Amino acid sequence: MTPPSPSVTPTVFELPGFLPQFVAGNRSRAIVCGLDPHEYDRVTGGLGTLHDWLPAFRRVGEAYRAAGERYAAGGHVVSAGGAFRTAARWLHCATFPPLAEHARTIAAAREADAAMGRAFGYLDPEAVRIEGEGFAGWLRRPVDSVRPVRVVLVVPGLNSGKEEFHAVDEALLRRGVATFSYDGPGQGVLVDGAPRADHHRVASRVIDALATRADLDTTAGVGLVGMSLGGFHAILTAAHEPRVAATVAVSGPYRLDWAELPLFVRETLTVRAGGAGAAEEFARRVDLAGIAARIGTPLRVVEGGDDVTPGVLSAERAGHEAARGEVLVVPHGDHLLCNAQSEWLPDTADWLTDRLG
Rank of each mutant, 00 (worst) to 15 (best):
L47G: 00
T268P: 00
A259H: 08
Y182S: 03
M1Y: 09
G221Q: 03
P6W: 08
G75V: 01
G157P: 07
T2Y: 11
G274S: 07
F232A: 02
G161L: 11
I106S: 02
D306V: 02
A73E: 10
V191L: 10
H92D: 02
G34D: 07
L153N: 04
G82K: 10
G45M: 09
G221W: 05
L313H: 12
L328R: 11
L229E: 05
D198E: 13
E326K: 11
L210I: 02
G319S: 11
P4M: 12
W53C: 02
D354M: 08
G75C: 06
A214C: 05
V301K: 13
F165S: 07
P148L: 12
A24I: 03
G117F: 07
V222H: 06
G230E: 06
L313R: 15
G121W: 06
H92F: 11
T44A: 03
S160M: 03
G231E: 04
P298G: 08
D215I: 04
A80C: 12
T297I: 13
P37T: 01
V286K: 06
I207L: 15
R29T: 07
D307Q: 07
T219P: 00
A112W: 06
E131R: 04
T212P: 00
L352P: 06
G82C: 12
A211Q: 10
T309Y: 08
E164T: 06
G296T: 08
R89E: 11
A63E: 12
L91D: 08
L229C: 02
P331D: 13
C338I: 06
L288V: 07
T44R: 05
